[in-house]
């Protein structure tokens, strides 16, 4: 272990370590974050949900997007898997179907960051994250 020789050392160290706590910090205040839920049941996994989830998490970490990604069970849109539910604070949740890793990144860039709607939204009235 390296000694912490100055106050700046400690600050630097904290910066480097912060990253590891990120998901826990985010879980503390999910309501103020964009909540993203990837359907991860067998149907989802078979059609690539895990890759979609990884792509989203990578993008969120890289661009420091205030969003938290969780996995959910089957949402009942097996025909449209992988599906992703996105809840922006203050807005109704939206479900996207047939999401590929590429579309996933697009959802973040266009819908989450800029509020633009993109294709692939499943019109629904279903149980959402906060109910």
């Amino acid at each position: 272990m390296n000694k912490i020789k100055s106050i700046d050392d400690l600050r630097k160290m904290k910066k480097d370590l912060e990253f590891g706590m990120n998901i826990r910090e985010k879980s503390n205040s999910p309501e103020s974050l964009v909540q993203i839920r990837v359907a991860m049941a067998t149907c989802g996994i078979a059609s690539g949900a895990r890759e979609v989830m990884n792509a989203m998490i990578e993008k969120i970490e890289k661009d420091k997007i205030p969003a938290v990604v969780t996995q959910g069970g089957c949402m009942g849109y097996c025909y449209a898997e992988p599906t992703v539910e996105v809840k922006v604070p203050g807005k109704d949740p939206v479900v996207f179907g047939y999401v590929s890793p590429k579309v996933a990144v697009e959802i973040l860039e266009k819908y989450v960051l800029n509020g633009e709607l993109i294709e692939g939204i499943i019109p629904t009235n279903y149980q959402s994250i906060n109910q």
């Binding site: 912490i4 106050i7 400690l10 600050r11 160290m13 904290k14 370590l17 912060e18 590891g20 706590m21 826990r24």
Partner: peptide, 25 residues
């Protein structure tokens, strides 16, 4: 129930010892 108490790095990541640094500095 939030950090691993046997890992000082997790404490530091949550601003641990920053208060001490602040008063000393």
């Amino acid at each position: 129930g939030f950090i691993d108490p046997e890992n000082i790095d997790e404490y530091i990541a949550r601003d641990g010892y920053s208060a001490l640094a602040k008063v000393l500095g």
